[in-house]
């Protein structure tokens, strides 16, 4: 058991996986342009230049000069601006330490810096672009259809109520309640870490919008029955009845059978 967990914690293991994974995603996006049109996003030369400076200072240690990758981090050529915006914008990158997967934490860079780095990485090779306003506009979206798509494609990892779930060997699918529409969309098109890629041929942009609408709806409305106990299903319900329910009942039985003073 110890050996396993040590192997899992071996710094190179996660890196190697990340490297392979991101190389694939990057490579695929460069190749399979028929399904995922690398949207021509306009970044100014200035932004690219600033981004390169930030990249060299903050990312190149692991991802290498020119983002070609190193022993400690995958190549970012062709991962696209969306990937950078997701990883840096949610605070996952830069990683604090090597682990089963990159953790969410407060973003280390402001929006402008993130955009500059995205511009730089996007300039290295075609990849998924940061979704525009119209892609995220959920005013016309159908949350019920989003729910159907979500249950088939997402619920097995992220839980039917988007409360998150466990993966193998310390990895996990995070809860989605804090995620912004843009980051959710970017996660779907880039497939960060162990999440599969859901390209536009798999889940159409309309369906992606519906999924976001569904997530927003269940997040906003809350549970009609009262506190949702973490939306973790029967486990938290069982724990609640044993601890709180029986606890209160025992308190009453003790009072009931105690002598009055």
């Amino acid at each position: 058991m110890k050996a396993l967990s040590q192997r899992r914690r071996h710094p190179l293991a996660a890196v190697a996986l990340l490297l392979i994974g991101l190389l694939f995603t990057g490579g695929v996006y460069a190749l399979a342009s028929s399904t995922n049109e690398a949207k021509a996003q306009t970044f100014s030369a200035d932004e690219v230049q600033e981004g390169e400076k930030l990249f060299v200072a903050n990312c190149a240690t692991c991802h290498g000069m020119g983002a070609v990758g190193s022993e400690n981090g995958p190549s970012l050529v062709g991962v696209g601006a969306a990937s950078v915006d997701f990883q840096v914008g949610t605070g996952r990158m830069p990683m604090q330490m090597q682990g089963p997967q990159a953790q969410v934490k407060p973003p280390q860079f402001n929006d402008e810096q993130t955009m500059q780095m995205a511009a730089y990485v996007a300039s290295l090779g075609a990849g998924p672009a940061i979704p525009g306003e119209e892609a995220l506009d959920t005013s016309e979206a159908d949350p019920a259809n989003g729910g159907v798509v979500f249950r088939v494609n997402c619920a097995m990892c992220h839980n039917a109520a988007a409360a998150g779930g466990a993966l193998t060997r310390g990895k996990y699918a995070p809860a989605l309640s804090g995620s912004t529409a843009k980051h959710t969309y970017e996660a779907m098109v880039t497939g960060p870490q162990n999440m599969p890629v859901f390209n536009d041929a798999n889940i159409t942009p309309e369906d992606k919008r519906d999924v976001i609408a569904f997530l927003e709806t269940i997040d906003e409305q809350g549970s009609p029955g009262g506190a949702d106990l973490g939306s973790l299903g029967p486990v938290s319900e069982g724990l609640f009845i044993w601890v709180a329910g029986l606890g209160v009942i025992i308190a009453f039985t003790v009072w009931l059978t105690a002598r009055s003073s």
């Binding site: 249950r151 088939v152 619920a155 097995m156 990892c157 992220h158 839980n159 039917a160 109520a161 409360a163 998150g164 779930g165 466990a166 699918a173 973790l232 299903g233 029967p234 486990v235 319900e237 069982g238 724990l239 009845i241 044993w242």
Partner: peptide, 15 residues
């Protein structure tokens, strides 16, 4: 029969 949710558990007494 196709989808499933993470955290699929029975009620506590079947757990």
């Amino acid at each position: 029969p196709s989808p499933v949710s993470a955290g699929t558990q029975p009620d506590w007494y079947i757990g």
